[in-house]
C-alpha cells in the first residue's frame, strides 16, 4: 500500500483569478510523473490535500471533472497561511497533491434521475466538476433533466463565468443564475437569494435528487424550500467542510459523531445528517 501521507509532485500550469475581489484563484495542476496521474482516479465530489513544502496542506474540493484529462483544477479561497502562500505562487512552481480523498456524490444512485444543483458563492467547485461530468457525452444519457441554481453576492463574485454563459446557451441544462444584489445594468439574470430563487423556479422533486453546497446560511434556508417542493431527506445531498489534516480518517479532528468528514464524507444526505450530532 502506498504511503497515504505522501503528496504527488505537481507543477502549476495556470493560475486564473476568478473573482473581482481577487480572493479566489483557480489553479490548474499537472502531474510531474505520468504514473501518478494514472493512479489519481476520482469522481466529482471528492477532494484532495494541496501541499506546499514549507507551508503545509489544505483540503480543497476538486473542481475539474474526471472527463477532463491531463490536469487537475482547484479553486482556492485565500484565508490562511497555506492559501495565502498559494495565491502568491506562479505558473511553473512545484507543489503537491494528495488524494483523491473522501466520497463523492451518489452518481450510481442518481442514474436515471433528474438532478437539481444548488450552489452558493465559492462552494461551486465540486458542483462545476459534477456539471462538466454529467454534460459529457459519455454520461449525459445517464441523467434526466439537469437544473442549476447558482448564486453569488454580485456578478463579480461568480466562479467560472465563461462556462456559466456557455451552459446558459445549451438546451440540455437549465441554468438559474442569481446575485444577491447588483447595480450592473448588463446583468440579465435573476436578482435574489438562492433559497428565494429556488422557490420561484420550483424544480420538480419527482424522480429528482438535489445537491446543495454553499455557505451554512444558504443551506439553512434552502432546505425548507426543498422539503416544501417534495424532496425527501434521502434525496437531498450536501457536502461539508471541516478542518482536516490527514484526510484519511486517522488524525481525529473532523468527526461529526461517528463519521469522519474526510473519509466517510464529505458528501452526506440530509437523512444521514439527521442521525448525527448537530456539530458542524
Amino acid at each position: 500500500m502506498k504511503n497515504p501521507y505522501l503528496p504527488y509532485p505537481v507543477r502549476i500550469q495556470e493560475i486564473i483569478t476568478e473573482t473581482q475581489d481577487r480572493n479566489l484563484k483557480t489553479f490548474k495542476l499537472v502531474f510531474l510523473n505520468p504514473e501518478d496521474e494514472a493512479g489519481f482516479v476520482y469522481m466529482p465530489g471528492q477532494f484532495a490535500e494541496l501541499s506546499v513544502a514549507g507551508q503545509g496542506e489544505v483540503p480543497i474540493g476538486i473542481a475539474s471533472s474526471p472527463t477532463e484529462k491531463g490536469f487537475l483544477m482547484f479553486t482556492v479561497n485565500r484565508v490562511g497561511r497555506v492559501t495565502t502562500y498559494l495565491h502568491n505562487m506562479k505558473p511553473g512552481d512545484v507543489m503537491g497533491v494528495r488524494g483523491p480523498l473522501g466520497n463523492w456524490y451518489p452518481w450510481e444512485e442518481m442514474k436515471g434521475k433528474n438532478v437539481v444543483i444548488i450552489g452558493g458563492g465559492f462552494a461551486f467547485t465540486t458542483l462545476r466538476s459534477s456539471i462538466v461530468w454529467m454534460l459529457d457525452p459519455a454520461h449525459r444519457k445517464d441523467y434526466g433533466d439537469i437544473t442549476v441554481v447558482y448564486g453569488a453576492r454580485n456578478p463579480g463574485m461568480l466562479l467560472y463565468k465563461d462556462e456559466l454563459v456557455a451552459w446558459e446557451q445549451r438546451d440540455d441544462i437549465t441554468m438559474h443564475l442569481t446575485v444577491d444584489a447588483t447595480d450592473d445594468p448588463t446583468w440579465k439574470y435573476n436578482v435574489g437569494f438562492v433559497p428565494a430563487v429556488t422557490k420561484e423556479k420550483a424544480p420538480g422533486a419527482e424522480n429528482a435528487y438535489a445537491i446543495v453546497c454553499g455557505p451554512p446560511i444558504m443551506i439553512k434556508f434552502t432546505l425548507p424550500v426543498l422539503t416544501d417542493l417534495g424532496f425527501p431527506p434521502e434525496r437531498i445531498i450536501t457536502s461539508l467542510e471541516m478542518r482536516m489534516k490527514c484526510g484519511i480518517g486517522m488524525c481525529g479532528r473532523c468527526n461529526i459523531g461517528t463519521e469522519y468528514v474526510c473519509k466517510d464524507g464529505p458528501v452526506f444526505s440530509m437523512e444521514k445528517l439527521a442521525t448525527l450530532p448537530n456539530e458542524y
Binding site: A53, G56, K245, C246, M250, G252
Partner: peptide, 24 residues
Amino acid sequence: CWCFDIQDEVHQQEGVRLRLWDSC
C-alpha cells in the same frame, strides 16, 4: 488518545513535515 497534527518546519533551506500529538 491517538489524535495528531501535521506541521511543516523549515530550517534555512531544508524542511520537514512532522506529525505531532494533538488534543481535542
